[in-house]
Structure formats: structure tokens, C-alpha cells
């Protein structure tokens, strides 16, 4: 298809960050965006996700540099806290703006 035939109003959709756009990751990022940090259990309770599901999405966000995983020990027990990196915060903010711009432009 020639490039000139592409509807320019739809180009905005191509800019959406697919990593953030996935609903489960979007939920996770929304929760992490409004807090400082949290552990797996808190995030499972907030999002209703299973441990396996949460763990998989966390890995993807961590690989992308959106998530910082802080491992430590509380007594003898391992303690993992998760927080969005500045890059992750920017990505989430950019995603919100893009979605708002794109969707607000659509007719009712």
C-alpha cells in the first residue's frame, strides 16, 4: 500500500508502547506509578494476578529497564521490593499522553 494512502489520523496508534499497553502490565505499572515500591504479595492483592503471571510480566518490564528489582533480606527471609525506574515512569507517562491524544481525537 502506498504510504500516502495511510490514514494520518491513525498514525498515533503506531506510537503506543506495546510493552505498557498489555492490560496486565498496564495494571502493574499503574499501581507502581502511584506508589514508591511494593513486594510481590502486595501487587498480587492489588491486581488479582497469580504469582506466575505476575512474575512473567515483571521479568519483561525488568528486561526493558522499566522496573527495578531490589533484593534484600529481612532476617533470614529474602525480601524483594519492586519499583518503577525513571525510564519506566517516563514510559508510563508517555503512554497515558499518547492514549489520551489518540482517543480524544476520535468522534463520539
Amino acid at each position: 500500500m502506498p504510504e500516502s494512502d495511510v490514514n494520518s489520523d491513525l498514525v498515533g496508534f503506531a506510537d503506543i508502547d506495546r510493552l505498557v499497553h498489555e492490560p496486565a502490565r498496564l495494571m502493574l505499572m499503574a499501581v507502581l506509578y502511584v506508589i514508591d515500591s511494593a513486594d510481590f504479595t502486595f501487587l498480587m492483592n492489588q491486581t488479582g494476578m497469580t504469582w506466575g503471571n505476575l512474575s512473567a510480566h515483571m521479568s519483561k518490564l525488568e528486561e526493558a529497564g522499566y522496573l527495578d528489582v531490589e533484593k534484600s533480606f529481612k532476617g533470614k527471609r529474602p525480601n524483594t521490593m519492586l519499583r518503577l525506574t525513571p525510564q519506566g515512569r517516563d514510559a508510563f507517562q508517555a503512554y497515558r499522553q499518547t492514549m489520551k491524544q489518540v482517543l480524544d481525537g476520535l468522534p463520539e
Binding site: V34, D36, A38, F42, M81
Partner: peptide
């Protein structure tokens, strides 16, 4: 804590 998990809130 074991049931609810840990959380730190923002500024």
C-alpha cells in the same frame, strides 16, 4: 504483612 504484603508510598 504476610497476607497483604509490603508497600512504601510516595512523597
Amino acid at each position: 504483612l504476610p497476607r497483604m504484603g509490603q508497600v512504601k508510598f510516595g512523597e
